[in-house]
Nucleic acid binder design. Structure first.
Lengths: 240, 240
DNA sequence: AGGCTGCGTGATAGCGTCTAACTAAATCTT
DNA sequence: AAGATTTAGTTAGACGCTATCACGCAGCCT
């Protein structure tokens, strides 16, 4: 929760570089923050599609159109929340990597972050809106997130190279943002990302609910297997 | 596209067991189908949240409330589309498994199915609506899908058993719906599902777009690795 | 032919986004 | 301090949406 605060107070997408100079500006930022606070609650309660500026205004004791002084549209508010979510995830990763620069630690930090507020996760990785194009600074944060992953995997011993993917990744390493990691590391980090997202998003979407499975165990097992720590090796032996 | 038709015409959730007896009923089913057709187009164009009964009515040349004769609410229409999506995926799997009972074939059938209509995929595996509870017949279809996966993996040689997961899966195999597969097979099928969903959903959500990566290659590599056919073995050698 | 059933209509309530014109207060300028 | 300007908030209203209701009307069945 405090982390969410931190991220939102950091997101002063307005004129002031830090904090606020004039009282007006300070007030403005505070109202914006309060609006986002209510917005987060609404999203947590009923999903992003149910977010209503009118309802927020009511909760804050003012009348509908007043909020348009602070957010030019409902979409802008949502975009801001998406930005904050990205920012919060990136911060979590950076902080975790600072304490324990290990893929395992990142993996569990990711799940904890996601469970703290599942809808925040879906704000980042959920069903996209067809027309929507993420603003540039968001993609910058995404690259930052990738960088943490690459660092974490760089620290680990890399297996032999030569996958078909590796060649492709070597040619298209723009997304790595100038990170010097070898292709094999890119591949590992990428797989780390996609595989954790696979388990985690299915858990958050409730697809394991009816199955009686323990999501934490599932996730931990997946992490172990990604790290090569699975108690059962892959079945290349039984392969033709 | 034809497949979609097939699925929708199959979904006669009404009174008639097959086709339609009376002319009235036939008319009713046809209108329902036409409504769903327009709904699918709208969802493909602007996502499920933008679906509007009013707009559909306009497109069909009738006035808003008329549609409530056919669907009691917007939610019911969406639920119906979700059901159709599940049905369509299950049919695709069953058909594919009938022709080529191999996980690889299923994997690529899944991606093709998803690419045919990405929003249909998200109808099944996308961001959930907080209050929403899937109807029972949908979970039945989900079990059917799982059964196809289990069959496909049963046909393959299984690696040694003994993962921590295996014990858990052995105790909670209710979701397997009475399928006799050993725990190791359950584990493989589950990983198959979560890992493919990981790559595929990120592709469909456009998260690879800004990266310049080739999603098809990524997916194929993941499939290869799941099957143990990766040109690079996992790095248990380099593991401490 | 007559009665029932079900289809489609317009009217209406209620909620949502968002614009526009206006008031009032705070801030800036001189 | 007084006036000019900027900004916050208001109400009114246009417009779209879901959903209900009462009504007319056609098709269907006996």
């Amino acid at each position: 929760m405090e982390e969410s605060e931190e991220a939102s107070s950091r997101g002063d997408g307005e004129a002031s570089s830090r904090s606020a100079r004039t009282p007006r500006e300070r007030y403005r930022l505070q109202v914006r923050a309060e609006v986002k606070e209510h917005a987060r609650e609404q999203i947590a309660a009923a999903g992003a599609s149910a977010l209503s500026l009118n309802a927020i205004a009511r909760q804050m004791g003012m009348s509908g159109p007043a909020l348009y002084r602070y957010f030019s549209s409902r979409d802008e508010l949502i975009t801001e929340l998406v930005r904050d979510a990205y920012r919060s995830l990136a911060d979590t990763f950076v902080r975790t990597a600072g304490q324990e620069p290990d893929p395992t630690a990142l993996a569990h930090a990711l799940r904890e972050w996601a469970l703290q507020d599942p809808h925040r996760y879906f704000l980042v990785y959920g069903t996209p809106v067809p027309g929507y194009r993420a603003p540039d600074d968001v993609t910058v944060i995404a690259t930052e997130i990738m960088a943490v992953l690459l660092d974490a995997w760089t620290a680990r011993p890399v297996p032999g190279t030569g996958t078909a993917l590796d060649a492709h990744l070597q040619e298209h390493r723009r997304w790595a943002g100038g990170h010097p990691a070898p292709a094999a590391v890119l591949r590992r980090a990428l797989a780390f990302w996609t595989r954790l997202h696979g388990v985690l998003s299915l858990e958050l979407a409730g697809h394991f609910n009816g199955m009686g499975l323990d999501p934490a165990l599932l996730y931990a097992s997946e992490v172990d297997e990604i790290l090569g720590r699975g108690s059962t090796g892959p079945d290349r032996t039984s392969e033709g």
